[in-house]
Write a protein that binds this DNA or RNA. Structure first.
Lengths: 252, 252
DNA sequence: CGCATACTTGAAATAGTTCAAAAGACGTGG
DNA sequence: CCACGTCTTTTGAACTATTTCAAGTATGCG
């Protein structure tokens, strides 16, 4: 189960290659990136607001959440990063940290020096484009979250998020046929969909009772993909995966 | 009042230069960009979902909203673009449109061919970085919107948005001492803060009654900047303006 | 003047929150 | 391997912010 840092770089390469064509030299350059492996305990912040960072964080194993802390102690989660995601690739061009990163579960990350990423972008201009594009996809996901939270009811928000995460894990090759690992508490998941933990719990109960999906501390199991797609009004276009145009988005 | 397209390019240059150092050659390259001027009526979509575009849209005059259309006819606005914003700079690296752009008021835009922007990015690698960074700032704004909608009450959301827009208009040199042009209906503003138009109307009434701000069809007037900052829990760090560290964010 | 668009207000309904408590899981040390 | 404390989930009941439904009032424009 223990993933090596080499495997994590390969996962990131796979993610980049989903949206950008890369030649052999570019691929080797990614795979040859240096980095410092760091273990992070669940609940621990590994990037803090206000810092200036000189490295980006590749998620090797576990799960990371990008979030803001509000005055009254509330939190807003604005992104989840799964293994193979460069959680703060944007920091390469915006070093002042405005969003904290926290491990939602025991995780391992690889700290990749900005210097190395800068060098790659300079030497391989098409990699610079690929990096930029990767950030655009993250922004697309965020825009979709905004719409979901602003205009859909609690069950639709959760259903939509589950669809999104399933496809992202599957694109990374990390999902099973009808499940994906998602080691997170209900409290943090609630922070990502803009609900109280209590109400999220009731929504999860409803999804369970209606045989749509189940969640425990470690994973999500999808029982009825079409039902989730319908409930969440899910259309995967915003994820910018290669255009396979399947009839059913989740294709279970 | 009629702004020329040259002036619009100068505005965009100013916006880029806020966050990226640019030398004279780079500045001239931006100012020399070609483009096709287009007038857009209020309520008209000028970029539609599903299209593939070969140009990016610089807002010359007016106001543009990026939005999603939901199944039941509801809308979610995910960004406002003011004059001097390249509303879909991201399209340079992601040509498949996933968010529509609509003029919120009678507007003029400049269609700048991707080919020209590509050429600039290739010839001036630091401009490629500046473009990428500009997209990161837009994503930052979006993340802040997500937090606001997910975790703040209706009045705080609106107050926060007014603070943000004031600073953005002011950075562009388009604000007055205590007001900024914002030609938008309450219906569309409601779509941006995730409220019903009816409730937004009540929130605006409250802001008016409490002498915080007033809105008409054409502009927003801030009556009490500190009050808005406090109500919206506004911290301008996410806008990534040069670090002037004013005591009061709005500095009225 | 009359129609269209935008805004305003009231009252009833409801989705989601808040407060309060208990029950289940899980690891640790005795 | 059992007891204990901690963390997470679950459930109930009262409350409230926001929505929904239903008019009605400005404002501008041809």
């Amino acid at each position: 189960m223990a993933r090596t840092t080499d495997e994590a770089l390969a996962l990131w390469l796979k993610r980049l290659a989903l949206r950008s064509e890369l030649d052999e030299a570019e691929r080797q350059a990614i795979l040859g990136l240096p980095g410092e492996a760091v273990a992070v305990a669940a609940g621990q912040d590994f990037v803090r607001v206000g810092e200036r960072v000189d490295h980006a964080c590749l998620i090797v194993e576990g799960l990371a959440a990008r979030f803001a802390q509000l005055g009254n102690g509330q939190r807003g989660v604005v992104a989840f990063h799964i293994p193979g995601d460069m959680a703060d690739l944007h920091s390469v061009v915006a070093r002042q940290v405005t969003w904290a990163l926290q491990a939602a579960a025991p995780s391992r990350i690889l700290r990749i020096p900005h210097a190395a990423l800068d060098a790659l972008a300079t030497e391989h201009p098409r990699l610079a484009i690929a990096f930029w594009r990767d950030c655009i996809v993250d922004a697309n996901v965020l825009a979709q979250w905004t719409v979901n939270i602003a205009r859909k009811d609690s069950a639709a928000r959760v259903a939509h998020l589950l669809c999104e995460l399933f496809l992202r894990y599957r694109a990374a090759g990390l999902s099973g046929y009808d499940f994906f690992p998602f080691p997170i508490t209900q409290v943090m998941l609630a922070d990502a969909v803009g609900l109280t933990p209590i109400h999220l719990n009731r929504v999860l109960k409803r999804l369970r009772d209606e045989r749509l999906a189940t969640k425990d501390l470690y994973e999500i199991v999808l029982k009825n993909g079409e039902g989730l797609v319908a409930l969440g009004e899910f259309d995967p276009a915003y994820l910018q995966f290669p255009d396979t145009t399947p009839k059913r988005p989740l294709d279970l």
